[in-house]
Amino acid sequence: MRKNLLLLGAFIAAFHAPSVLAQAASPVELKGDVKLDKIVVQNGKEQHILSEPKIVVPGDRLIFSTAYHNNGAMVVKNFVVTNPIPEGVTLASDATGLLEVSVDGGKNWGRLALLTVPDGQGGTRPAQAADATHVRWTLASVAAGASGVLAYNAIVR
């Protein structure tokens, strides 16, 4: 798995010149991006058309991505990227399986299926995608020069 990551990281690195400014502040650079994900059916097959989110309305799918790039000369370890889920969107329910999420503002973490939230009547209920407040990724290490992209799908509330 790591080997794959590094391979793809190298692929991206070729097209992203390291930022000198960012390097001065931190060996790692983060760059966020968001795309509108329109699903169209062509010849009976669903296709995802990604575009700049020029027009966005409730119900639309967005893909939030964070590109990371280790510009430094040394390996970075315990690399944890945290994305608070913005107000106005909800985590897409079909994208939660492998994601590590929090439903309590970032205090506790886990897969959504294992988390619970208060049910408002003194008990708890299984967490839904709409309950997620944060999503995060943990990489044991990012080699010098390596890069990659972390993404999650959201739906405009």
């Binding site: 931190s26 060996p27 913005p86």
Partner: peptide, 21 residues
């Protein structure tokens, strides 16, 4: 809808953090 990602990491003996745009 505004989103900012944060990363924390260890580089050598230093702990660092960085924010995205």
């Amino acid at each position: 809808i505004q989103s900012t990602a944060t990363a924390t990491y260890t580089a050598g003996t230093m702990n660092g953090s960085v924010q995205s745009n």
